[in-house]
Nucleic acid binder design. Structure first.
Length: 832
RNA sequence: GCCCGGGUGGCGAAAUUGGUAGACGCAAGGGACUUAAAAUCCCUCGGUAGUAAUACCGUGCCGGUUCGACUCCGGCCCCGGGCACCA
């Protein structure tokens, strides 16, 4: 062994050995339990950052641990290669997006390899390859045939100067990021997939996902936003009646106005002879598309001058046009009850609209300050007075239904998934437009629709619109000249099914095959919390679509989910724009992959954000150096112990010190096993460090012992020393696989580190003669007593009550109660 | 604005989920070794008072439940993630 820890040599040689033996190539094996471990695949932005290091280290630790437990583990890797940054880079550096992307992938692949992840590289794929995206094109054509994909108009951010559609990210303070022009809302035809048809299934499925963090399930529930309510009709003179959806029909008598979206047909019609309304609608066009922009907007509106008839009171209520009403959500019109809805309240106050309380609030309720939104019995509601929420809902619903002025309805916040992007660097939407036959999906035999890769971007239009060879085609149905769709798919399409393709990565005649049925669902999925809703919801949705095509057998794609926190430096997210990034490349050179892995696991629990610290990295490095130095020092001893015959050791006959060391070893192992099972990996490292400290202490202890007559290798202390080290190596192996693999070999342990099993507890390891009990007086720790392990509750209480220190605090007081928590504590409750 | 998290020593954190607050580590200070430095090893390390034993205070803030609260409940403050075309 080299005297000093030479991480570069160790890591290169170990990785070379893994490659040579192809240790991580995996195939289906029905005799073993499978374990599919997947960390969200990276976008090839150019360089690996420490957030990636954290993400993939977490995955690798889990994969290697599951392997030690004897599972058939698959851990694949690939590239989420389509997306906006490639187009931006193409414009900036005048290089085709494909070229830029492939170059980045080559660079990042090398960086990933240096970190020593147990990937099956033979399964690697990139989503911008036609062999991959042809299958999502195929699935999409199936959805069109099934009526689950359709085309409709939808709003986009429109830059009126550059004449281009902007992503939300490209809108800064309501203006285009390049032109600086005020962004306009523009309606264009786009493709949608009916995720709302699966809303209930996606919602109910959340209850089965017990391996997911509760917060993610809650976020998805809220995102789907199922609500039961009433769609109520308000007749309008000389116009189509207004439909509004409400979950609070109990407040119907409190309606003081209706509000419609600026894009509502009634608003547009009414604006013809209403200049003020016309102007307002124009102004509302300068709102960007994002929901947060809409929600933080100052609530404004204009009275249309029209009125609608209240369906129960027949009173005329004014119709306002308001900027906060969204056309694509619900019906584009809402009923407003200022007394019992906070947003309506604020709007009514601003425009001095009437407020009618119709719920029995506390008599002291101040309606000049805030709305009363609790569910309470009705007042001022004619025959419905006194009814509580459920009864009122029912009675009002029935009354309206009898007049055919309402329907019960279930509404979702979830909207259908718009998958059209007016961009080049994405998978072409496989649709052909024919004058005679209309919209025709590209037949399976003609797929893939290949994206031309040799292009130049001008930053305005998609190059696809300027490549006649691309968009000129024949109609597959009638053979006439026809044109292709030039929009591409949302990149969430690629990332919504890649996990399944890793099982059937080389299958060229179908999207998936039986191997996908073996490997899916993913047993452990790992990724950033920022993907809690959108990516994870779309992936769940696509899994169900694939299931309905018979391609997979389960209802959900990911059994267990670990959402890792962000990597921060100086309290903010690491990012290029903030200039606070740390380059893993330099760190790997200086400290090695094992140090980086150890640091990212040790410094914070996986789900919390991780604060980067240079001295923390140094500390992790120091630990590995100490481990190496210890091993060098004891190599001869350990090797001879490993080479010797093993005789039985009766631990009960050993010194109490030795028994204590042994018990501590197993206490630490128990903690490490408990923590790695619950994925609290930072404390697994703590356990490893504790065990190492114990090992060092034991070696000092051993040095002080008188020379024994028995040969050293047969001494119990030597056997225990060896045991501690072999447990330590296996606890550390998933986290720092290079150094442990090398030490395993150099210290003469049998077999290969890779084939070892996770250490087991010894049956008698935790047996003890006495236990320590905390003695509290009135909840404050006052003393600690040691009692025999078999002592009864009464004995322990008696001992505690007789304890000198406890007596000091009991003093003149009377003991009111004594609470005993088995094996833990006694609380003596006293008072004067 | 809405939804979801988080807040514990100088710092990263732990507390097996209502039972010893601060394990493990970093930084700092002191010491050993060394001609010296680095490396390594040993000791101290929440605050206040005290030579000490020890006592009191202490988990963002205010209040509550409990024999007992970092943990549960109510109300606030601050920080972060998401909000449908960033991925």
């Amino acid at each position: 062994m080299q005297e000093f820890y030479n991480h570069q040599e160790i890591e290169q040689q170990t990785q070379h050995y893994w490659d040579e033996k192809q240790l991580y190539r995996i195939t289906e094996n029905l005799s073993k339990e499978k374990f599919y471990c997947l960390a969200m695949f990276p976008y090839p932005s150019g360089h690996l950052h420490v957030g990636h290091v954290r993400n993939y280290t977490l995955g690798d630790v889990i994969a290697r641990y599951q392997h030690l437990k004897g599972k058939n583990v698959m851990q694949p890797i690939g590239w989420d290669a389509f997306g906006l940054p490639a187009e931006n880079a193409a414009i900036k550096h005048n290089v085709p997006p494909a070229e830029w992307t492939y170059k980045n992938i080559d660079h990042m692949r090398e960086q990933l390899k240096q970190l020593g992840f147990a990937y099956d590289w033979s399964r690697e794929f990139t989503t911008c390859q036609p062999e991959y995206y042809r299958w999502e094109q195929w699935l999409f054509t199936r959805l069109v045939e099934k009526g689950l994909a359709y085309k409709k108009n939808a709003v986009v951010n429109w830059d009126p100067v550059d004449k281009t559609v902007l992503a939300n990210e490209q809108v800064v303070d309501g203006r285009g990021w390049r032109s600086g022009a005020l962004v306009e809302r523009k309606e264009i035809p786009q493709w949608f997939i009916k995720i709302t048809a699966y809303a209930d299934e996606l919602l109910d499925g959340l209850d089965t996902l017990e391996g997911w963090p509760e917060q993610v399930r809650t976020m998805q529930r809220n995102w789907i936003g199922r609500s039961e309510g009433l769609q109520i009709t308000f007749p309008v003179a000389d116009a189509a009646p207004l439909q509004v959806f409400t979950t609070r029909p109990d407040t119907l008598f409190g309606v003081s106005y209706l509000a419609i979206a600026p894009q509502h047909p009634l608003a547009l019609a009414s604006a013809q002879n209403n200049p003020a309304l016309q102007k307002f609608i124009e102004e509302c066009k300068n709102i960007e598309v994002s929901e947060s922009a809409l929600a933080t907007l100052e609530k404004r509106g204009v009275n249309t001058g029209l009125t609608a008839t209240h369906p129960l009171t027949n009173e005329e209520v004014p119709i306002w046009c308001a900027n906060f009403v969204v056309m694509d959500y619900g019906t584009g019109a809402v009923m407003s009850v200022p007394a019992h809805d906070q947003r309506d309240f604020e709007f009514a106050q601003h425009y001095d609209l009437p407020l009618k309380p119709v719920l029995s609030a506390n008599s002291a309720w101040d309606y000049t300050k805030t709305a009363y939104t609790e569910r309470s019995p009705l007042i001022n509601s004619a025959e419905f007075d006194g009814l509580a929420f459920d009864a009122a809902f029912e009675a009002i619903a029935t009354a309206l239904e009898n007049k055919q002025l309402a329907e019960r309805q279930i509404n979702y916040r979830l909207r259908d998934w718009g998958v059209s992007r007016q961009r080049y660097w994405g998978a072409p939407i496989p649709i052909i437009y024919c004058d005679a036959c209309g919209t025709v999906p590209v037949p399976a035999a003609d797929l893939p629709v290949r994206l031309p890769e040799d292009v130049t971007l001008d930053g305005v239009n998609s190059p696809l619109k300027e490549i006649p060879e691309f968009y000129h085609t024949q109609c597959p149905t009638c053979g006439a000249a026809a044109t292709r769709e030039t929009d591409t798919f949302d990149t969430f399409m690629e990332s919504s099914w890649y996990y399944a393709r890793f099982a059937s990565y080389d299958q060229n005649s179908s999207m998936l095959d039986d191997r996908a049925k073996y490997w899916t669902p993913v047993d452990q999925y790992i990724g950033g919390i920022e993907h809690a809703v959108m990516h994870l919801l779309y992936a769940r949705f696509l899994h169900k679509l694939m299931r309905d095509e018979g391609l997979v057998q389960t209802d959900e794609p990911f059994i267990n989910l670990l959402t890792q926190g962000m990597v921060l430096k100086d309290g903010t997210k690491m990012s290029k724009s903030k200039g606070n990034t740390v380059d893993p490349k330099l760190l790997i050179e200086k400290y090695g992959a094992d140090t980086l892995r150890l640091f990212s696991i040790f410094t914070a629990p996986p789900e919390q954000s991780l604060e980067w610290s240079d001295s923390g990295v140094e500390g992790s490095y120091k630990f590995l150096k100490r481990l190496w130095a210890f091993s060098v020092k004891h190599q001869t001893q350990i090797c001879s112990i490993n080479a010797a015959d093993r005789s039985y050791v009766n631990w009960k006959e050993q010194s109490s010190e030795l028994q204590t060391y042994r018990r501590e070893l197993y206490q630490i192992l128990q903690q490490a096993t408990f923590d790695i099972e619950r994925l609290q990996l930072n404390t697994v490292v703590s356990a490893a460090m504790k065990l190492f400290n114990l090992l060092v202490e034991l070696s000092h202890h051993q040095a002080k012992l008188p020379a024994s007559e028995a040969p050293f290798v047969q001494q119990p202390v030597a056997r225990l020393l060896n045991k501690m080290l072999v447990v330590l190596l296996r606890i550390l192996y998933p986290i720092t696989p290079h150094i442990t693999t090398r030490l395993w070999k150099d210290l003469g342990y049998a077999g290969k580190m890779h084939d070892a099993y996770w250490p087991k507890m010894a049956n008698d390891a935790l047996d003890i003669d006495s236990i320590n009990i905390i003695v509290q007086v009135n909840g404050k720790v006052r003393s600690k007593i040691s009692v025999p392990a078999e002592a009864s509750e009464d004995d322990i209480k008696a001992l505690a009550l007789a304890d000198e220190k406890a007596l000091k605090f009991i003093a003149q007081n009377t003991v009111r109660k004594v609470i005993y928590i088995p094996s833990k504590l006694i609380n003596i409750v006293v008072s004067a």
